[in-house]
């Protein structure tokens, strides 16, 4: 219950933070909400030598609708995207997931970007981001790059940030047509990680066919899993329960869950199958302007 000692840095500006991260290199770690990092430190599963606390960089605490996308700053808390009008308008998948991330108090402190950078395969946000085709803005003293989420999530607790880089923004593209989305999570109780979860996203063309689709899975592989094959099956098609069932079967086959106290692998596959179908149906209903 007591974390190990570390050097603490509290930069007052982004430039100062980036310089410090550059200077510390591998020994530096960003402290944002700390809702994953601090518990790991308390259990002595993590012992960073230096923490660069970005909580004073309040300029990064934004959720806004930019021209082409929804922009979420590095210091936006999970709670900031719950019941947020920009989020609801631009990313129904994200709006659906937001209330189910951690618990209400953790949401008040933990950040969306920090959770994405954490790359916990049981974490919710990366499935959402994979389904909606988000990008991560990584910034360092030498500039900025925009990393597609699929390239950002490398593996189990591993992202593609370089030394000295930090996530400064998450960008979620605006749907081109009428869109809907859902995040269906099986958790054992509030505050739990997912046993299995499915993020779905559908963008409909004016003729009612699917112009873009997203399906990504939580906690059933070594990282959050985008099911491209299932997405491709939907694109260009007229949605139907049969089509969704086929996509769901593909998603269930694509995942690679472990058997554990949360259930055997085949159970988790069955849940993925059922939730993919349900999630797509919800996304469709929403895209068609019906009940979400």
């Amino acid at each position: 219950m007591y974390p190990p000692a570390f050097e603490y840095w509290s930069p007052k500006s982004l430039d100062e933070a980036l310089s410090k991260l550059q200077e510390l290199g591998h020994d530096g770690r960003v402290l944002a909400g700390g809702q994953s990092l601090i518990p790991m430190m308390k259990l002595r599963l993590a012992a960073p030598a230096n923490l660069v606390d970005i909580n004073n960089l309040t300029d990064l605490a934004y959720v806004r609708a930019d021209n082409g996308h929804l922009a979420i700053g590095a210091l936006a808390r999970h709670a900031d995207v719950v019941d947020n009008d920009h989020v609801k308008t631009i990313s129904p998948t994200m709006a659906s997931a937001a209330p189910w991330v951690a618990d209400p108090l953790v949401r008040n402190r933990g950040t969306v970007a920090g959770s994405i950078a954490h790359c916990d395969p049981e974490g919710d946000w990366n499935s959402v981001m994979l389904a909606v085709g988000a990008s991560v803005v990584a910034t360092s003293t030498s500039g900025q790059r925009v990393i597609p989420i699929g390239d950002f999530v490398v593996d189990f607790f591993t992202n593609s940030l370089a030394e000295g880089e930090m996530v400064t923004e998450i960008q979620i593209p605006r749907p081109t047509g009428s869109a809907g989305g859902a995040y269906l999570k099986l958790e054992r109780k509030i505050g739990d990680y997912a046993t299995a979860a499915v993020a779905t996203f559908l963008d409909l063309a004016t003729d009612g066919t699917v112009s873009n689709a997203g399906i990504a899975l939580t906690a059933v592989a070594s990282k959050n899993l985008k099911v491209t094959e299932a997405e491709q099956m939907l694109i260009g098609q007229t949605p139907s329960p049969e089509l969704f069932a086929e996509a769901a079967a593909v998603a269930a086959a694509a995942c690679d869950p472990e058997s554990d106290v949360r259930g055997p692998a085949e159970y988790k596959r069955a849940v993925i199958n059922a939730y993919t179908k349900r999630g797509l149906a919800k996304a469709l209903a929403q895209a068609q302007g019906g009940a979400s």
Partner: peptide, 17 residues
């Protein structure tokens, strides 16, 4: 009575633990 045990019972799968 965990969900996977219920599902296992319904589907004839030995869903231990």
């Amino acid at each position: 009575v965990l969900p996977h045990r219920v599902w296992g019972a319904l589907n004839g799968v030995d869903a231990k633990p």
